[in-house]
């Protein structure tokens, strides 16, 4: 059985030639949650955007393959790729406050993909949407569907976006820090909700986060990123039991703990970062030679 998502050797550069993704390889098996963890700027969101075909225009993919259920995204015509991505994937965005169109009602925003891309009847799409709103524990779907985004709270909007993501039964969902913009009490509910829906629907998730606590709760596999490079990948349980890479260990040591709130916050160890920087510089030099 082929992987749901298979990224091999993916590199991306900025216009000035700087590499932002450094030969990234990772696979997500059907029904599996793979966490992408790293500091801001590590390129974890970039990987998600590359898969979904929504990279900013300044970022250019220079090598590597992305296979979505065996289909090579790089080889497809733009329209075919767009339709394939629309049919088989979905995005749970980071900030629910900006991810809904302020001038359109919630209902059409949830059903437009089902009707216009997947060709469902309006009635079927409507039924499906209500079912999903029920699954994300929205009690009054009637009111929510008729609302404009500004009439709902942040937590409600994220529930709507999660329901919309699962509505088309995608094979892969990219969750881009879906809890970061929410306040702490809501974060937990939303995380639990995503985990429950994921289990029920058997959807594979590429879960982008900077929070190791979230990684431990939701994922089976994890890739640790630094400066666009996968420094370690492992089963989540194995990673937490015995982190192999010095950077992973440093990242874990830098995570604040609720059990010891008065301990001072530690930054990631400088010596580890210096070692990583040298390693990456050497790799870049080696990479540039064949790539001009």
């Amino acid at each position: 059985m082929s992987a749901c998502l298979d990224i091999a050797n993916l590199s991306a550069v900025l216009p000035n030639g700087q590499r932002v993704l450094r030969s990234v390889s990772l696979a997500v098996q059907p029904g599996e949650v793979r966490a992408l963890v790293g500091e801001s700027g590590a390129g974890k969101t970039m990987i998600g955007k590359a898969v979904l075909g929504v990279l900013p225009s300044s970022v250019r993919l220079v090598e590597g393959d992305m296979l979505l259920e065996g289909e090579d995204l790089g080889r497809l015509q733009p329209k075919a790729r767009r339709t394939l991505i629309g049919a088989r994937t979905a995005l749970i965005p980071q900030d629910p406050l900006t991810a809904l169109n302020p001038s359109r009602r919630i209902g059409p925003q949830m059903t437009d993909r089902l009707v216009r891309i997947l060709g469902w009847s309006g009635e079927k799409a409507d039924r499906r949407t209500r079912q999903l709103l029920d699954e994300v524990q929205i009690r009054d779907p009637e009111r929510v569907l008729k609302s404009y985004p500004h009439e709902l709270s942040g937590g409600m909007r994220q529930r709507v976006l999660i329901a919309a993501a699962f509505a088309a039964e995608p094979r892969l969902i990219v969750a881009d820090e879906p809890t970061t913009a929410l306040d702490v009490t809501v974060q937990k509910q939303i995380l639990r909700l995503i985990a429950a829906l994921q289990r029920e629907h058997g959807t594979a998730i590429l879960f982008v986060t900077h929070d190791l606590g979230v990684v431990a709760k939701i994922s089976q596999k994890v890739s640790v990123l630094y400066a666009g490079k996968v420094v370690e990948e492992a089963d989540t349980a194995a990673l937490f039991a015995a982190p192999q890479h010095a950077y992973t260990r440093a990242l874990m040591a830098a995570t604040p703990r609720y059990t010891d709130p008065f301990a001072s916050l530690k930054p990631v160890d400088g010596a580890v970062l210096a070692g990583l920087a040298a390693e990456i510089a050497a790799a870049d030099l080696a990479w540039r030679r064949p790539h001009g």
Binding site: G53, K79, R82, G86, L91, T98, P102, S103, R104
Partner: peptide
Amino acid sequence: DYVVLARVKGFSETQVILREALKN
């Protein structure tokens, strides 16, 4: 973000402009 989300849904750039962006 909501425009990016519409692209992920599979809408073309023209559809995205006319349906999501133009009114705002």
